[in-house]
Write a protein that binds this DNA or RNA. Structure first.
Length: 325
DNA sequence: GCTGCTTGTACGGATCATGC
DNA sequence: GCATGATCCGTACAAGCAGC
């Protein structure tokens, strides 16, 4: 089958998966039973992989063709210009002429390679970096806000739809959510991301599918936690210390103030900075004073942060709060 | 190369909010 | 009431870096 025809058939097939929850889908796929959505997921995942292979094949063929054409053109050019130069000026070294032409050809080749790279990037959508959102630094951030979906009610609806469908996809992909996310096979993750991107093109904005990954991780975490709570899942023995931690924790202590932690980190940094000073200090008194100063900073910053009213509600945190200087 | 420190990430527990 | 989302907490671990 010609690549264009095969590609059209494939695109049609992928397009047919776009609304996998419609009533027509069951008829279209002629599938009965409760695992209908799982089968649709697998078919869509397979089609997307096939399309990627096809795109790569076509792109490779085009590049090979272009390269062959360039080689032929430059070989021809080299022959013609070499002969012209020799005829016009017998005093010029033939090797110099060939070297100059070769350098020129290489420069032209490099320029063309750049153009091909740009065109290839544009085809895959990677060129539009301005719309791409990188993963925020750190592990403590608000997924919805960082996705740029926290501005209004409509955004919230979009985000909720993403949560719902991502949950479905995790189950349809057959991902074992009882396993830690790090132990989930990479190919299973890749299939999930591909189908999620296809069903929700907005997810293409997030570099390396970080948004999808964070949503899935949160879902799995909450699902496991629920299992542990209900008793139908047993937490791994390696995390037994967490249970001990929580037993040691003061239940009446406020938990909503992140700034206290930030202040402690800042104080640690400050203490590290002053380490040099204290090391140079000849007396232990000087060291003690420096330590006391560092401790005072913790108290001061805690007081300051408490008065700013951090931790007063949900959704108010972000990576920006991590500013420590 | 070793050591110690910093930083980022993963993880489950606790808690509160939200939606059905 | 229950399931789920969101957030903070404390510990473990790995990678990176600077000082020796």
């Amino acid at each position: 089958m010609a690549p264009e025809i095969a590609s059209k058939a494939l695109t049609d097939r992928i397009g047919a998966h776009i609304d996998p929850y419609s009533d027509e889908m069951e008829v279209k796929h002629n599938i009965e039973g409760s695992n209908f959505q799982d089968i649709v997921f697998l078919r869509q995942s397979n089609d997307l992989a096939e399309r990627k292979i096809q795109e790569q094949t076509v792109a490779n063929a085009a590049l090979q063709e272009e390269l062959a054409e360039m080689k032929a053109r430059f070989a021809n050019d080299l022959t013609n210009r070499g002969r012209e130069n020799i005829d016009a000026d017998a005093g010029i070294d033939k090797d110099d002429t060939i070297s100059a032409v070769l350098a020129e050809a290489r420069a032209a080749n490099a320029e063309l390679q750049k153009q091909v790279a740009v065109l290839s990037a544009e085809r895959s959508g990677a060129a539009d970096q301005s719309k791409q959102l990188a993963r925020p630094a750190g592990s403590s951030f608000n997924i919805q806000n960082e996705m740029g979906l926290g501005r209004n009610r409509k955004d919230r609806e979009i985000y909720k739809a993403l949560l719902r469908n991502t949950r479905d996809l995790v189950l349809q992909a057959g991902i074992n959510w009882e396993l830690p996310w790090a132990k989930t096979p990479a190919d299973a993750k890749a299939k999930l991301y591909a189908v999620a991107r296809e069903r929700h093109p907005v997810l293409q904005r997030y570099v390396n599918d970080w948004a999808t990954e964070e949503i899935v991780k949160q879902f799995i975490k909450n699902k496991c936690r629920h299992g542990y709570k209900k008793g139908f899942l047993v937490p791994p023995a390696e995390y037994a210390y967490l249970k001990a931690n929580s037993a040691k924790r003061n239940p009446s202590a406020p938990r909503g103030c992140k700034s206290a932690k930030v202040a402690v980190v800042a104080a640690k940094k400050l203490a590290a900075k002053k380490k040099d000073v204290t090391a140079k200090a000849s007396s232990s008194k000087a060291a003690g004073e420096a330590k006391a100063r560092a401790k005072k900073v913790v108290v001061d910053q805690e007081d300051e942060s408490m008065s700013e009213g951090f931790g007063s509600g949900r959704g108010g945190y972000g990576s920006a709060d991590e500013e420590e200087d």
